[in-house]
Write a protein that binds this DNA or RNA. Structure first.
Length: 516
DNA sequence: TTCCGACAGTGGGGTCGCAAT
DNA sequence: ATTGCGACCCCACTATCGGAA
């Protein structure tokens, strides 16, 4: 199949807002692909590279080769070229990659260049991703969507499932099961502002015996880790299914020592201090990202696995069993010091006290879980709802950036500063684009155009007069910002026209919050 | 007819490894 | 030694479609 054919489909998908029409266009392309091409077509139309990483990003694609006149490259040829680019390493690899990229792009038409550049940059933005792909695979193959969804969660990726579905139909799709050693998509949590709302709003499993039963569990601020044990062979995977086995040998040892031949566990890896309090996320994250001298690293920043779920043990899959049963099995397997503390909910006040205690102990928050819920891999908000404390500050807008995509032509991302009463200046603490409705975007585009002190192509500096109420999760150490601190997960709550910049929060107030 | 679950888009800060400078 | 880039860790929130209620 020609790449051109895929691009025509992508253009059709991008041209409509109807999800049914997107699904139909993708399904059509999947049907036209044959044999091994299905995998590539499915991956490309979901905005995924089968290679995952090729060492080239947006920056490496800023200037493209002179395009070809006629489309001639097949999807298989594109795949081969991308694999070749990704396999370069060592001295001179950057130059070789550049040459190979130029060769490839010289064979592509202008449209194809744009498509491949967006694909590589991870910014296809055609209004369809994995969700549309699932429906399209079902439509193209005649296999029911629930079976497709389940296979994708167990296989980790949609593209191989597309291939199986179009080749062998339902029987081949049903063959895709949980394989110890191969990561499944982790179950995700929705969120709620308060513990009470998490308890009320939770989606309960219709088939659950006791629909009311729920528990609260500590939410640890570390790295999600999925551990697979096959005899002495242990493998560790992150939330995005990256393998990190070699980076956390102390975790591998703990899993290897568990009294089971095979097991698949879900949990969080976190660096704990000697007194048991958690290190900051930055410490855990840096340790987990480090690949150097692990003997020294584990000495300096030991990481503990804290498990909260068991998906498989000794040949038995548990993903369809209720959480209460999975955790009972987990308790029999994993020592308590490696299990996430949890408590059944008997009344909302008790759950709230649990939240308060855990936050006081330095943890990120809690997750409310329905005890009757199955492990819904790859989905959010099904039976798990997280709650975290929220801080707010009144800050001053120092500059704004022009948006892109659906925010093109609107001033979007705002730069935030705290007042320094000693100098009268403002100290930047970060940026945010979150929490803005379309109406707010229109309003702020007008407002900041009025306050602009220059006309930047990208960043527009403004007179520091507009106060905005910002919510955020906490403070972190920063080398980027002048105060040495930055906001974590900042988002806009509202613009405050009842306050002048003189009344905004000061840098002293921010520092007093601590945490960085 | 209204409501709501799922999804895609729009980006945030920090950190490491690696190759080039 | 420093810098820039790529990749990946953590992520919040709104708009929209289409099926559920």
């Amino acid at each position: 199949m020609l790449l051109h054919d895929v691009i025509t489909t992508s253009a059709q998908v991008g041209a409509t807002r109807s999800r049914d029409a997107k699904r139909a266009a993708v399904a059509d392309a999947l049907r036209r692909a044959d044999g091994d091409e299905v995998l590539l077509v499915a991956a490309y139309l979901a905005g995924v590279l089968p290679q995952r990483r090729i060492g080239v990003g947006w920056r490496g694609l800023r200037e493209l080769a002179v395009p070809a006149e006629q489309p001639a490259v097949t999807v298989t040829e594109l795949d081969t070229a991308l694999t070749e680019i990704g396999s370069q390493n060592g001295a001179g690899s950057a130059g070789r990659r550049k040459t190979l990229v130029a060769d490839l792009f010289g064979r592509l038409t202008a449209d194809e260049q744009q498509f491949v550049a967006r694909l590589i940059g991870g910014e296809l933005r055609q209004g369809a991703g994995d969700g549309v792909m699932l429906a399209a695979i079902a439509a193209a193959s005649g296999v029911p969507e629930p079976a497709i969804r389940r296979a994708v969660m167990l296989a980790g990726y949609a593209a191989p499932v597309a291939q199986a579905a179009l080749r062998g139909g339902l029987p081949e799709v049903e063959q895709i099961g949980l394989v110890v050693g191969r990561p499944v998509r982790p179950m995700l949590a929705g969120s709620a502002p308060t513990v009470a709302e998490a308890i009320d709003g939770e989606t309960l499993d219709p088939g659950a015996l006791d629909r009311a039963a729920q528990q609260v569990e500590v939410k640890l601020d570390g790295i999600r880790v999925q551990a697979h044990k096959l005899g002495d062979d242990v493998r560790l995977f992150t939330r995005s299914l990256e393998e990190i086995t070699d980076r956390l040998p102390e975790v591998v040892e703990i899993v290897r020592a568990l009294p089971a031949e095979t097991a698949v566990l879900d949990g969080e890896a976190i660096a704990l201090r000697a007194d048991g309090r958690p290190e900051s996320f930055q410490v855990t994250g840096a340790r987990t990202a480090s690949q150097g001298d692990t003997a020294q690293l584990r000495e300096q920043v030991p990481v503990t696995p804290m498990f909260f779920d068991l998906l498989h043990v000794d040949g038995e899959d548990l993903i369809d069993q209720p959480l209460a049963d999975r955790q009972r099995r987990m308790d029999a397997l994993v020592p308590q010091r490696c299990r996430v503390p949890r408590q059944q909910i008997t009344d909302p006040d008790g759950a709230q006290r649990f939240f308060d205690d855990q936050v006081a102990a330095g943890h990120e928050g809690v997750v409310v879980k329905a005890l009757g819920s199955a492990y819904a891999a790859g989905r959010r908000g099904a039976g798990w709802v997280k709650v975290k404390p929220r801080h707010t500050l009144d800050l001053v807008v120092l500059a704004v950036e022009w948006g892109s995509g659906r925010r093109k032509g609107l001033l979007s991302n705002i730069h935030l500063g705290a007042r320094d009463p000693q100098t009268g200046e403002f100290i930047m603490l970060g940026k945010t684009f979150k929490g803005m409705t379309d109406e707010m975007l229109r309003w702020q585009t007008e407002r900041f155009t009025e306050l602009a002190t220059d006309t930047g192509d990208w960043v527009v500096r403004v007179r520091p007069e507009q106060v905005v109420e910002i919510a955020f999760d906490g403070l972190q150490r920063s080398t980027r910002y002048p105060g040495g601190i930055a906001l974590r997960f900042a988002r806009v709550l509202r613009y405050r026209d009842d306050k002048t910049a003189d009344e905004a929060d000061t840098i002293q107030t921010v520092r007093a919050l601590g945490g960085a």
